[in-house]
Design a protein around this nucleic acid. Sequence first.
RNA 1: GGAACGGUGGCAGAGCGGACAAAUGCAGCCGCCUUGAAAGCGGCCGGCCCAAAAGGCCCGGGGGUUCGAAUCCCUCCCGUUCCGCCA
Length: 437
Amino acid sequence: MIDIRLLRSAPDEVRSALARRGDDAVLHHLDTLITLDASLRDVTAERDGIRAKVNDLSRTVGQLRRDGKVDDASRLQDESRELGLREEELAAEHDRVQGEIRNILLVVPNLPNEQVPEGGSDADNPVVSGPFLPNGGEDGFAEHQRVPHWDIGVALGILDNERATKIAASMFTMQRGAGATLARALCQYALDLNADAFEEVRPPTLVSTATLTSTGQLPKFADDAYAIERDDLWCIPTAEVPLTSIYAGEILDHAQLPARFMAYSPCYRREAGSAGRDTRGMLRAHEFDKVEILAIATPEQSPDLLVEMVGRVERMIASLGLHHRVIEICTGDLGQSHHRSFDVEVYAPGCGQWLEVSSISWFSDYQARRADIRYRPVGEDSKPVKGTALAHTLNGSALAVPRVWAAILETHRNPDGSVTVPEVLRPYMRGIEIIGG
RNA sequence: GGAACGGUGGCAGAGCGGACAAAUGCAGCCGCCUUGAAAGCGGCCGGCCCAAAAGGCCCGGGGGUUCGAAUCCCUCCCGUUCCGCCA
């Protein structure tokens, strides 16, 4: 959620920041919010005034009864009862307006950071690192690398989506043999590589409605998530969801920040908006594995953490011998909750496309406000200063298995059709160096 | 799933219809004392709304009774223990 106090005190700033996203419906919401907020404060003031009177009368009644002045007391009781009726009306109005404000706030997107580049769609996302390609171009790959991974996977007997579909439904995948081992090796590798700074967590992968709302998936993107209605739980689309809520509703000491977590988890996505797209191979599936890294930080720590996390992902992709680039997400393509965001993309020579394998994002206090994650700030002398402040959250996929798996098959395919396992993964591969060799 | 007992400030723990944002202890902060520290003494010491004063809200969530609810009633959630079931 954005800060309604900021909207109140600097409406033009909020308006122009959100205008950069190029979504007029959002601006209309702002007008509604300003109106509702003003009336909420009127109603609140009036309600609180009546409550003050009732409280006062009640105290007097108590005193009078102790003094045995029953008649006086009952006269005041009548008066108080009258006021109570009015208070009830105002309280109902207050709750109604407040609920309306909250419902709107839940769908208003985050303010983009000033540094987010201007743009209308993903076509305008600038490349900020790379591209790192053989011979400098997308056609710098050899002929034997020009085979899509779905063909390679079937030929080597390590991808069996046909049976995955039989077992579950379309757009589910199944890896077998060395393919399954490779998928797991990638997770192990990603976890080990980030264990220097991130605490490993094995979170729940089914979460409550409140938890899925905190990170921004609800209420707007309910159709994208798998719901387990009978138990009022949701399957997580990413470990970001449970990890962000680890400290939900808590007030942290400054010294606890940044808190950094990483988790391997399965991720479940209905892909409601993209049915029929990328249905072959591993490019888009309802269930996949991912290692997520996440930080809960102070506003001051956040910019550096964002850079650090992008660097970690970039180095890891490079260590797998994959060809990549980093793009920054422009204003028109920025996700609802995002304040600033970078994607790491890998070039898959077999299917001839850039694959998004990681998205590293800074959420400013947008998620923290929803999840109520606060900390006690300190002054320059490191002594606590008065009050609490909302934390900032950042997260990114350290490694999303399917697309990296696909890119490895295509990039490291040999002329004889076998696939060489990247050196760094071999410790996790039970000695397999070449798949199908 | 059943039963019993619980859910109060950072923690422990009183309060069980009015003077309670809430005793007390511990932790924390400031000061005195001290060469320094500890002990001792004095003071401070929850969060939220409102620009703020005033005021209001918060004793697991929601609802009810009452002039008045941390306290009584209903309901839901969570915890502990026992029983049942079970990877």
